[in-house]
Write a protein that binds this DNA or RNA. Structure first.
Length: 433
RNA sequence: GGAGCAGUGGCCGAGCGGUCUAAGGCAGCGGUCUUGAAAACCGCCGGGCCAGAGAUGGUCCCGUGGGUUCGAAUCCCACCUGCUCCGCCA
């Protein structure tokens, strides 16, 4: 079976495993894991011993029959039947324990790297750096949906009629800026960062959601179709699972991909949070980066990917800060996460616009995705990383809020002008000029 | 939606109840030859789990799960995935 955590490492150093969990605010689990593991192994040994007996007797049966020794033939037949019953019983027990261990490990989050700061929640995150400085306004900046030029092009009422809450209809200049942003980001990553442009499905088989860690624990967060397809909450799911089940050629690593996709999230559990504006939607667009690396280069790749995301904000002249999430605030599959927070003058706050995570072999174990190590000649799990580069809707918000003018128009960053037919501003009436 | 076909080791592919300890090819690794390389030739060359300090041994794996059988890659059933044709359709 494929084990979701390195069971040998847990056996060797259960205290370290529990200590890592404790840093995430979880109670120790090594006792339960190891006792299940010990039982499981005992059954396996018993089952395999019985099976070896059965195989031996089974081989002799044919010989006895051939030489016409009926008494021996019957004796061996009975022996085989007896061993077979033992094997069946022991195997069933082993497989039950195996399943239990698997279920348990499946729901244990990834272990934080040593370099990740300890902490309980977002208050304990640590700022790594800031870029740019918030603009000084000579009027009171408003939130994106309050800007005059935005009001006509960001229609929540119509969206609510169509689809309910947490949806939006974009129109005119705002819609075009939204589209331009996605194109700009893709182009930047493809031409400057050497990521491979990729287009993927947004409906996936259940197993893929297990591979990247959305399932089994977080099924409530995503949409499931009648036919059994899941709607991806991010193209991290499709991009990462491109190597699901594969033994990839080491020469093809690292694989650096970028995709622009629709993302779907039920936002169960976030009722009441960010209900106005388009900060948190059931459907949104994101340009996502994924890297598949070997075990040696994953950590370095994480910094590279963070830089790729930062470059987008810098090109768009949006002030941001980069933070490293503390152990208590990190997502399920991550070993370390950098968040990029963009300055939103309307909220007078930095808000998350990108999350860049290094997952080590956590997802690879779930996917059984490996490469052949050049050093040992043995298959080893790949390492995976994912990061937003960036969330398009939130970038739209940032561009609008940071560029807003007293008259309700919005000045747009130069990098976007070529994508808007040369337009440099969103007029107060919602058109481009 | 209907009908048919298929899923074998890194890849391709044989195999149709008992030396399958899975042929053969490709790729890879080592060697012979060569100034070097290529070619040719020779050899090596799947993965998981369990035990063991190790050498090594055991066991499982031919999409997945059951079943038939003394014995299953091979027969039966269910499921998953893919392909082809038809229908519908951007």
């Amino acid at each position: 079976m494929t084990i979701m955590h390195d069971i040998r490492a847990i056996r060797e150093n259960p205290a370290a495993f529990d200590a890592a969990l404790a840093r995430r605010g979880l109670s120790p689990m090594s006792d339960r894991v190891l006792s299940l593991d010990a039982d499981r192994r005992a059954r396996i040994v018993a089952a395999e011993t019985a099976q070896a007996d059965q195989n031996r007797a089974s081989k002799e049966v044919g010989a006895a029959k051939a030489r016409g020794d009926d008494a021996e033939f019957e004796r061996l037949r009975a022996l085989v039947a007896e061993k077979k019953a033992d094997v069946t019983k022991l195997q069933a027990e082993a497989s039950l324990l195996d399943g239990r261990l698997r279920d348990l490990l499946m729901e244990i989050p990834n272990l934080p790297l040593d370099s990740v700061p300890d902490g309980k929640d977002e208050a304990d995150n640590v700022e790594l750096r800031r870029w740019g400085s918030p603009r000084a306004f000579d009027f009171a900046p408003v939130e994106h949906f309050e800007i005059a030029g935005v009001k006509t092009g960001m229609d929540f009422e119509t969206a609510a009629k169509l689809s309910g809450s947490r949806f939006v209809v974009l129109k005119g200049g705002v819609a075009r800026i939204h589209r331009a942003l996605a194109q700009f980001m893709l182009d930047l990553h493809v031409t400057r960062h050497d990521l491979q442009e990729t287009w993927t499905p947004v409906l996936v088989l259940e197993n893929m959601m297990v591979g990247t860690g959305q399932l089994p624990k977080f099924g409530e967060d995503s949409y499931l179709t009648r036919e059994g397809y899941w709607l991806i909450p991010t193209s991290e799911v499709t991009l990462t699972n491109t190597v699901n089940g594969d033994l990839v050629d080491h020469a093809t690593l690292p694989r650096r991909m970028v995709a622009h996709s629709q993302c779907f999230r039920s936002e169960a559990g976030s009722a009441g949070r960010d209900t106005t504006g388009m900060l948190r939607q059931h459907q949104f667009e994101k340009v996502e980066m994924v890297s598949i690396t070997d075990a040696d280069t994953g950590v370095a790749e994480h910094d590279r990917m963070t830089r790729c995301a930062e470059a987008v904000l810098e090109a768009l002249e949006l002030p941001y800060r980069t933070i490293v999430l503390c152990t208590g605030d990190m997502g399920f599959g991550a070993r370390i996460t950098h968040d990029l927070e963009v300055w939103l003058p309307g909220q007078d706050k930095y808000r998350e616009i990108s999350s860049v995570s290094y997952c080590g072999d956590f997802q690879a174990r779930r996917m059984n995705a490996r490469y052949r190590s050049e050093k040992t000649g043995k298959p080893e799990f790949v390492h995976t990383l994912n990061g937003s580069g960036l969330a398009v809707g939130r970038t739209l918000i940032a561009v609008l809020e940071n560029g807003q003018q007293a008259d309700g128009s919005v000045l747009l960053p130069a990098a976007l002008h070529p994508y808007l037919g040369g337009a440099t501003k969103l007029r107060a009436d919602g058109g481009l000029a």
